[in-house]
Every structure is written in structure tokens, then in C-alpha cells.
């Protein structure tokens, strides 16, 4: 039995080496994330202080100032995008999962959503410019929200459909057997049961659109001042990064890094939040 202990050992060592190599290879995709985080934190963190969040941008060339208007702007622009996009998406998701199912129309909607999801964000920006900015005659936060809503709709439609499909049929039947009409069953049983999943989808979509720059360049446009009026041009975090990074002023470059830190951590937080929610769904099953 024990004639080849050396060979046995060698086999075990080879096995362990293989495992270590696999782990190292698996770590490769996570490296860029760490480099990115390390890089922006290194460049941006020292410009972040309370004033940075509370102050308006300084005039060009002057040092100091903050991004208060862009923070508020991002919340407003994304908020309006959610208000426009979410109801449409949820209704479309409900249609696909509960009514359209395998019909032609449902298939067309699914394909359209997938294609829309693949449209480059700069093209979405141009479309929003043509549909909203030109007829209105000026840039506005609202037009930016329209662009972002167009980007989030396909994501939320497809996740809503997927989540609602996962709701077991026996729950629909339980409700129908109580004499509850189908549409009420959908709104009061199916949708609430899938709500955590739908919310996860919305958070993922918000995380995606919150950092988009291209759709805002010729819609929300940017603004050095504070405005709460969605019909006016408005600043947003990605626009700050874009405008400051391409400016000739060294202080603005620093602030662009700092804004990148803020934006990245916001998006990261949203992603973590959606993960936690997704875990909760998995736990409930």
C-alpha cells in the first residue's frame, strides 16, 4: 500500500498548486476594480471635505468651491427619470409576464427592449435632444431625465418580467380561487410578491444611469449655479467630471477626481444595496 508515499505527496502538492493558480486567475477580474478605486481615492480623496458638498462651483480659474448643485442636480435628474421610466417599465413587465407571454406582440416588445438596451448612450442623448431640447428651444434637466429614462426602461422591463415569472402559479391560483379577478390578482398578489426583485432591478438601473455622461451632454447640459427647476439646464455629477477634467485648471482636475470618488461610491452603494435585496429574495425561497 505504502510503497509510493513520495508519489502520493507529489500528487497532493500538484493539486494544491493548481488550486492556487485557479484562485489567482479568478482574482484577475477584480484587479481593475481595486486599481480604479485606489487611483481615484488617491487622487480625489484629499479634495473632499464638507465644503465640497455644500458649496457652489467657484468661477473658472479660482480655487475652491464645491459640487452642491451637481449633487442636487443628479438627484433631480435621476429622480425624474425614475418617475418617468419605472411605471412604464413595470406595466410593460407585467404585460410580458402576465398577459402577452408567448404572443407576437410580447416577442416584439422583448426584442425592442433588448435593442434599446444596446443603443449607445450618446445616440440616446441625441434622440432626447431632437425630441425634447429642440422643441423646447433650450437645454433642461427634464430632457436629460427623458434620455436616462430611455436607458433604464429596458433594464427594468426585463427584470420585472423575469421576477414576476418566478412568482409561483399556485399563488395566482390561490387568489383566483378566492374569486379575485385576474388584474387584481396581478396587482395585489403577483406584483407585491415580486416587489423586492422589481426594486432590485430599479436600483441596478439607477446605478447604471446615475453615472451616464453622454446622454446629459446635450440635454441637461450643466450649470454653474444651483437650480431646482427641471425646465432649466442643470448640473450633474458626471457633467462636472467631464467639464472639469477637460478644463485647463489644475484645481478643477482635482475636483473632477473628487467628484469621481463621490459618484463611484454612490453607484457602489446602490449596487451593494441591490445585492442585499437580491440575497433577501433568495433567502425567502
Amino acid at each position: 500500500m505504502n510503497t509510493y508515499p513520495a508519489r502520493e505527496n507529489w500528487r497532493r502538492i500538484k493539486n494544491q498548486i493548481a488550486v492556487i493558480i485557479i484562485i489567482l486567475l479568478a482574482l484577475i477580474p477584480t484587479l481593475p476594480l481595486f486599481f480604479i478605486l485606489a487611483n481615484i481615492i488617491h487622487e480625489g480623496l484629499r479634495s473632499i471635505n464638507l465644503d465640497f458638498f455644500l458649496h457652489l462651483p467657484a468661477p473658472p480659474g479660482e480655487t475652491g468651491g464645491g459640487i452642491s448643485n451637481a449633487l442636487v442636480g443628479t438627484f433631480i435628474i435621476v429622480g425624474i427619470a425614475v418617475i418617468i421610466g419605472v411605471p412604464i417599465s413595470i406595466l410593460a413587465g407585467i404585460y410580458l409576464s402576465e398577459y402577452g407571454k408567448d404572443s407576437k406582440l410580447a416577442e416584439i416588445i422583448r426584442i425592442s427592449a433588448d435593442v434599446l438596451q444596446g443603443v449607445p448612450s450618446i445616440v440616446i442623448g441625441i434622440v432626447a435632444y431632437a425630441w425634447v431640447v429642440r422643441p423646447m428651444g433650450h437645454f433642461s434637466a427634464f430632457s436629460g431625465s427623458v434620455a436616462l429614462a430611455l436607458m433604464m426602461i429596458p433594464v427594468v422591463v426585463r427584470t420585472t418580467e423575469e421576477v414576476l415569472r418566478l412568482v409561483p402559479d399556485i399563488l395566482r391560483e390561490a387568489s383566483l380561487a378566492l374569486g379575485v379577478p385576474y388584474w387584481r390578482t396581478v396587482m395585489k398578489v403577483v406584483l407585491p410578491t415580486g416587489m423586492v426583485g422589481v426594486t432590485t432591478g430599479i436600483l441596478i438601473a439607477v446605478a447604471r444611469i446615475a453615472g451616464e455622461t453622454a446622454p446629459l451632454l446635450f440635454t441637461a447640459f450643466g450649470n454653474q449655479f444651483m437650480t431646482l427647476n427641471p425646465m432649466e439646464p442643470m448640473n450633474a455629477l458626471p457633467l462636472v467630471i467631464f467639464n472639469y477634467a477637460t478644463s485647463p485648471y489644475e484645481d478643477w482636475w482635482r475636483q473632477a477626481w473628487a467628484t469621481a470618488v463621490v459618484l463611484t461610491f454612490m453607484v457602489l452603494l446602490l449596487n451593494i444595496l441591490s445585492r442585499i435585496l437580491a440575497k433577501r429574495i433568495a433567502g425567502e425561497k
Partner: peptide, 30 residues
């Protein structure tokens, strides 16, 4: 269906509802 109730093979209480709400689901959902 209001006059003819049904109990299924697998228990299927509504997961979003409490025990109390489940019992009254036939009213609540309508």
C-alpha cells in the same frame, strides 16, 4: 369562485401577508 372555494395540493399562503391578512385575503384582495 366565491361560492366554491378551493384548497390546493401544496399549501400556498400569500408570502407577503401575515396570518391574519391571509385568512381575510378573500376580502382584502377584492
Amino acid at each position: 369562485r366565491r361560492r366554491v372555494g378551493m384548497v390546493f395540493q401544496r399549501p400556498n399562503p400569500f408570502p407577503t401577508m401575515t396570518i391574519y391578512e391571509n385568512v381575510l385575503a378573500g376580502y382584502k384582495l377584492l
